[in-house]
């Protein structure tokens, strides 16, 4: 299947996105902000369709909207970005706006399915280059703030006392997640970013409670699910996003069912 260029492109794009999603998703799960990540992708849908309406590339609308929303959520403090109800309302509103923009820009409607559910088999070289740039920025930024991010996520009160700015960390982190979501949405679509951002990370955290082990496993699982998903799709003609979603769910539930090793109590 590698003789087809669309297949090698798909593998390259999915590979980049999977690693970025697995790594940033790990922290999303650790901070209990998965719902915020989901909302960002929906806001991105409104951005992408809105960009189409004014004649811009949807990807830039996606990046711009998610980034602005991520930074706003971070600035409004952790308390608000963890508020499920507020996030749910914004999420629904964003989808609504996306629909409105589509309504006025009907020729764009064919792309709507690709935006919502992804279309990895249609990526070209330019998209791969953009994804690689997005991914590099995401990983470098994450590496730069990783240490205080972990501290602030695990022990916010103490981190604050040690001089870590919780607001800066949460804003920077949601900005990074926004970029990761934008990249991820290119592959599996805005509705299904959970499959690569949350599924592998949550499964990894069930299996190991070591930090680096979890991070690596999360990235590896995401990569395996994405590539295997494409292979299955190639042989069955099922949509790629479905295959990835199915593998992601399978991995997560397998990890849940696995009895994790737990040393006996000493007392």
């Amino acid at each position: 299947m590698f003789q087809y260029e669309f297949m090698t492109n798909a593998f390259a794009a999915a590979g980049i996105v999977a690693v970025v999603s697995g790594v940033s998703g790990y922290f999303l799960v650790m901070r209990g902000q998965t719902f915020a990540g989901h909302a960002l992708s929906h806001i991105g849908f409104a951005g992408a369709t809105g960009a189409g309406l004014i004649g811009l590339a949807p990807l830039w609308g996606l990046v711009g909207f998610t980034l602005a929303a991520g930074i706003a959520m971070g600035l409004l403090s952790e308390r608000i970005s963890n508020r499920d109800v507020a996030i749910g309302v914004v999420l629904a509103l964003s989808l609504g706006f996306g629909l409105l923009f589509l309504h006025y820009y009907t020729s764009f409607a064919t792309q709507a399915t690709a935006l919502l559910f992804g279309n990895v088999l249609a990526v070209d070289h330019a998209t791969i280059a953009t994804l690689a740039a997005l991914g590099a920025v995401t990983l470098v930024a994450l590496a730069a703030i990783m240490r205080p991010l972990i501290f602030a996520s695990l022990q916010p009160e103490l981190a604050e006392a040690k001089g870590v700015s919780l607001r800066f960390i949460s804003t920077a982190f949601l900005g990074i997640v926004a970029l990761a979501v934008s990249a991820c949405a290119q592959i599996v679509g805005v509705l299904m970013v959970f499959t690569l951002m949350v599924g592998p990370a949550a499964a990894a955290q069930r299996v190991t409670c070591g930090l680096w082990a979890g991070l690596m496993l999360s990235a590896a699982l995401a990569l395996a699910e994405a590539w295997l998903g494409i292979v299955i799709a190639y042989h069955t003609d099922w949509p790629v996003s479905f295959c990835i979603a199915a593998l992601s769910a399978l991995c997560y539930f397998a990890a849940l069912a696995m009895p994790h090793a737990r040393p006996a109590h000493s007392h």
């Binding site: 240490r147 501290f151 040690k162 930090l211």
Partner: peptide
Amino acid sequence: LDYIASSMHGERWGLP
């Protein structure tokens, strides 16, 4: 272990 380790110079930039 990782929980406690996160607090050791957790305010510094970079990788843990």
